[in-house]
Write a protein that binds this DNA or RNA. Structure first.
Length: 422
RNA sequence: GGAGAGAUGGCAGAGUGGUCGAAUGCGCUCGCUUGGAAAGCGGGUAAGGGGGCAACUCCUUCAAGGGUUCGAAUCCCUUUCUCUCCGCCA
């Protein structure tokens, strides 16, 4: 959510900034909602004041006749007040819903563009492997020894879920352990969180009210399965005031993520790239506004370090205006190389939300005069399923085995190579 | 799941219809004191919003939502959460 005062004073600038996203900010509609609200609020508050004064006078009035007269006046005001209050409530809700639907303002350095095709590559790292044989995609590799099974997951659940077995399941576990350990070494506190969250939390991070169709909702309660650990991690401090000396706060959590993504059928139907359930190690920072740009770079580097250590070829991309997420002011994507697709695919998305989320969550920093909103930053470090798939594809051999990256060997109980073709 | 008790400021905790945005203590902070510190003494210290160039002023908030009343932290209803006991369970 944007600062309403900032909005009032910078209407044109904000309109053109949001236009870069392809968002049409209706200035006239906003002005109308805001002035309606203001008129009603001024009127309500002055009536309330009268009512408060009269109520005090009634209490102190000794003369029975004047007291009765005042009681009569007070009753009249009370009725009027009730009426105008309902109008004000409606105006406030309308204005608030309008504000909740406005995306975040983009940073100046976000390149303009319409879709992901306009994202700008910042750099590429690692060497793209050359294969002298006909390569398999990660699904084929996994199926060699029944390490990846989609028939069983359909029986258990439905399509877009997966069952992993044996060394592949172990590799999946090894990856999350390795990532957690690495981030803890780099100064993040490991957190375990609920996988079901309430509506307020999802509103706080921006998934609701706009993107309900992407979520799985529990039918017997007002609860949702988390689409990312960003939601529980960020909401830890909802409605809290932080001391500036405890910042930055760095959290890491490993959770499953659940995404309904109703509109995405037909995309990435093969393999484990796009699933209703996947695991992810997530990084979240609460920072002072002055530090948020630098902290986004730090967090992105921390996510990159995993790719570097796993020797996976990747590139760093800055999302263009049209592709940057609703709540984000600036996003770097890390994209890993998939030999079977001959392309880079997103494996981490690192965003600076500035005060957009903290305004919704009311996370503030204690300051002598006025408290200020903190900034939130988060990013994947990394998506486990996609990392697993990338390792299978990039590290495959002609014999149908997969070389385990050195940093994972200990986590794999000493296994250096998966012999899948047996 | 059943029975009971409760939810008040950063924390602890008083307050059961008007004098309450809320005693008191702790914490924090400023000043005095001191060679310096501690102790002591004195002052300040909730959040959000409206109006005003400003000094300032007004409104809201005692878990959340609704109700009664001229007036609600206080009375009534609903929901959520916490604690104790019983049951169940990993």
């Amino acid at each position: 959510m944007l600062d309403i005062n900032f909005l009032r004073n910078n209407l044109k600038e904000i309109q053109s900034n949001l236009h870069k996203r392809g968002f049409d900010f209706d200035v006239e509609a906003f002005k109308k909602l805001d002035s309606e609200r203001r008129n009603l609020q001024v009127e309500t508050e002055s009536l309330q004041e009268k009512s408060n004064i009269l109520a005090k006078e009634v209490a102190q009035e000794k003369n029975q006749t004047t007291k009765n007269q005042k009681l009569k006046d007070a009753k009249k005001i009370s009725t009027d007040l009730k009426e105008i209050k309902t109008k004000l409530d409606i105006a406030l809700i309308d204005l608030n819903n309008f504000l909740l639907g406005i995306p975040n303002i983009l940073s100046e350095d976000v390149p303009e563009g319409k879709s992901e095709d306009d994202n700008k590559v910042i750099y590429k790292k690692g060497t793209i492997p050359e294969f002298s044989f006909k390569i398999r995609d990660h699904q084929e590799i996994g199926e060699l020894s029944n390490g990846i099974n989609f028939e069983e997951s359909v029986i258990i659940a439905k399509s877009r879920f997966v069952v992993l077995r044996k060394e592949i399941a172990k590799l999946h576990r090894a990856l999350s352990q390795y990532m957690l350990d690495t981030h803890v070494e780099n100064g993040y506190e490991e957190i375990y969180v609920p996988y079901l969250v309430n509506k307020n939390s999802l509103e706080g991070t921006g998934q609701l009210p706009k993107f309900e169709e992407d979520l799985f909702k529990i039918s017997n309660e007002e609860m949702y399965l988390i689409p990312t650990a960003e939601v529980p991690l960020s909401n830890i401090y909802r409605n809290k005031i932080l001391n500036s000396d405890e910042l930055p706060i760095n959290y890491v959590a490993h959770t499953p993520c659940f995404r309904s993504e109703a509109g995405s059928y037909g995309k990435d139907t093969k393999g484990i790239i796009r699933q209703h359930q996947f695991d992810k190690v997530e990084l979240v920072k609460f920072v002072h506004p002055e530090d948020s740009e630098a902290e986004l770079d730090k967090l992105t580097k921390d996510a990159e370090s995993i790719l570097n250590n796993l020797n996976l070829p990747y590139r760093k991309v800055i999302l263009c205006s049209g592709d940057t997420g609703f709540a984000s002011s600036k996003t770097f994507d890390l994209e890993v190389w998939f030999p079977s697709q001959k392309t880079y695919r997103e494996i981490s998305s690192c965003s600076n939300f500035r005060d957009f989320q903290s305004r919704r969550m009311k996370i503030r920093i204690k300051q002598s005069k006025d408290n200020i909103l903190c900034h939130t930053i988060n990013g994947s470090g990394l998506a486990i399923g996609r990392t697993l798939a990338a390792i299978l594809e990039n590290n495959q051999t002609e014999q149908g085995s997969v070389i385990i990256p050195e940093v994972l060997v200990d986590y794999m109980g000493g296994i250096k190579e998966l012999n899948l073709s047996r």
